[in-house]
Design a protein around this nucleic acid. Structure first.
Lengths: 211, 211
DNA sequence: GCTCGGTCTTGACAGTTGTCAAGACTTTCC
DNA sequence: GGAAAGTCTTGACAACTGTCAAGACCGAGC
């Protein structure tokens, strides 16, 4: 709609246009899913949250499931590098710890709907076979993401990590999920404060007693 | 139908009969919910898993929501004392640790559907206001349950707990949830083994360095 | 200008859902 | 035995869902 098209529309491979629409629909879908949750999200509602009508979904996706899975992967691409800056910029353990906790708080605050959607989808995968593959893939990606933070923290501390990647991810994810629940259901401010304190207390415990 | 009723049916306050049916329906509902998950469970399916027809639900519950919430509370009553024996019978830290880990494995194996249902309902409460109160109440109950284990573990170790009840619950719940996911989606045996190892590694970290 | 391929809307379909009313069946009590 | 209260079944309803087909719209190329 902006003036980028002068004489003709910009040369664009058909596949690009197609994929762009798919991404556009994925974004509408993610917005709706984050608001309503997996169970209560219908294709019509997704279309309502976009500029298209409900029939268009079947033009770009063969299936509701295909749309959802596409959304999940699309979402992953957005969040997987979330803590890379924290890892790259910190030069001391304390600095990394503060930056990591701050980033956790930030994403909890700014993207609470997306996080609850992720937990929703992960839980649904325990009932629905179709989600299994995508969920396992994302979960692994998140574990790797956490592992980069924890192992960098150990490196800056001059210590070894005393946990497996899975364990480190498990405990941190547990704390984050609890904070999200408190944030959404009870006391947002308390949730953020507690999360900061818990992460600061936990991270040193992931290290071996220094030699 | 058994011979308990001799001349008349046993004297039974009407409220008792009413509550008994409600519990009967709650059990059918929990079986169905554990199998299908919250979203895919319909009142007709619940009735199919009982000896009644679908209309009876509305005789005992005003609402689908009321049935679900009743189920949640009914479920809680079953599981809240799960680790009391572990706490009562153990006399050394190592013994408690082994017994606790064994009990976690046992309940993960025997009641996987109920556990995934709990995580499902807890996640749904982030979208649905109606579940909020019941979920927060159960979550608190579980936190207390874990706290009894952890503080007894500290007592037997002659040390102080270095975490808040919320933090201890958060990390252990994170590990358990991860184990459940692995158990259901990937490798059941590996999930159980990893859980045992992780709990053994984590529990000592909940204690203050002994004085 | 006019066709043509791609894009999108509209309307309909069959199935499922929560809800509820009407009545049949059962138990209780006189 | 028969009335009354309690219990349960049946069938229907409106709303909603995923799916899809028929055709309208639109820009590009001859």
């Amino acid at each position: 709609m902006a003036g980028a098209t002068t004489t003709k529309t910009i040369r664009r491979a058909p596949a690009d246009k197609f994929d762009e629409r798919r991404n556009q629909l994925a974004e509408s879908a993610l917005r709706t899913l984050g608001e309503l949750g997996y169970a209560r999200t219908s294709l019509r509602e997704i279309a309502n949250n976009s500029e298209f009508s409900h029939g268009v979904v079947h033009y770009y996706f063969s299936d509701k499931t295909e749309l959802i899975v596409y959304c999940v992967r699309y979402y992953k691409a957005q969040c997987v590098r979330r803590y890379d800056g924290v890892v790259a910029d910190s030069t001391t353990p304390a600095e990394l710890l503060d930056a990591f906790a701050a980033k956790l708080v930030e994403t909890l605050q700014d993207e609470a709907p997306m996080h609850r959607l992720w937990y929703d989808l992960r839980t649904q995968s325990m009932f629905e076979e179709t989600l299994r593959e995508a969920v396992l893939m994302i979960d692994q990606t998140l574990e790797d993401m956490i592992w980069r933070v924890v192992s960098r923290y150990a490196e800056l501390s001059g210590a070894e990590v005393a946990m497996t990647p899975a364990a480190a991810y498990g405990v941190l994810d547990g704390l984050f999920q609890q904070a999200l629940l408190t944030y959404l259901l009870a006391d947002p401010q308390a949730a953020l404060d507690e999360l900061v304190g818990q992460v600061h207390a936990l991270m040193p415990l992931t290290l071996s007693p220094h030699t």
